[in-house]
Design a protein around this nucleic acid. Structure first.
Lengths: 135, 135
DNA sequence: TATTGTTATACTCTATAACTATA
DNA sequence: TATAGTTATAGAGTATAACAATA
């Protein structure tokens, strides 16, 4: 049976995007997070005091869709909000958040390993370089 | 501002997958289709008489999620169903479907061009080769 | 028992519009 | 005006369970 979609990068991107999604979310195991939560936590961790809007721009997440993500992270006590200029709110990883960050990093890394094992180390590195070019 | 996710292929895949999704769906313009419809139509076109289940396996779409896709294609008169062995139903592109296939192909190709323009022809070909390796 | 088609449903993620508050 | 945060809502896509029909 022929798969005519193999020639189309667009369709491939959609499918492999879903593969990445499943790899990431299954890697979290019992951790009560989804992949956007982890991504946002990592960005806050690397940029203490960053605002929701800035994170949204960095990760291509709409402002409105940032709200429930931050709310979850705050509710778990992993992220703190401190008033900034105007209506802005600075975001910081809390002490409890610092404790869980290594687990989040390790889980994300295991998803990386899963993908690398699936396509081979060489293709994996090429893929990383190209995707980096896109964003 | 640092973006720690640039190091993670998994997150990249999710984001670029969404990029591919938007590129594809916006390329269809006035055509009353979404990207799964086009993908399925292309597979039927390349494999006359194929069953829903086989398409689902090829494209990683659940059996249950194939139902509304086929229903839409049939309702538009682009796809015909003919009884096969047992409970199986063979799928075929109808004459009306044949007429619209070039437009679907062209639209999908324009999405390809959009992505290629975004990352450059060289990276695009590398990307195609690697993604082909995944599926 | 295994496969196919189907229905119903829940969940995740994204998109849009509109509102308030601040500069 | 422009930006930040928020609320509400709609839509697309995926996942799961359960059922009937056929081999």
């Amino acid at each position: 049976m022929k798969n005519p979609l193999e020639a189309f990068v667009g369709f491939h991107l959609v499918r492999t995007g879903n593969l990445g999604l499943k790899a990431l979310n299954s890697s979290y195991g019992d951790l009560p997070v989804r992949h956007p939560d982890v991504a946002v936590a990592m960005v806050i961790h690397a940029n203490p005091g960053i605002t929701q809007s800035s994170i949204g721009k960095m990760l291509s997440i709409q402002r409105s869709n940032m709200v429930p993500i931050i709310a979850r992270l705050e509710q778990r006590g992993w992220v703190e909000r401190r008033a900034g200029k105007g209506k802005t709110i600075g975001l910081f990883i809390s002490p409890d958040g610092e404790k869980v960050m290594p687990a989040l990093q390790a889980a994300s890394q295991s998803a990386e390993d899963f993908i690398a094992a699936k396509i081979g180390a060489e293709a994996f590195e090429q893929l990383r370089a190209i995707l980096k070019k896109i964003s």
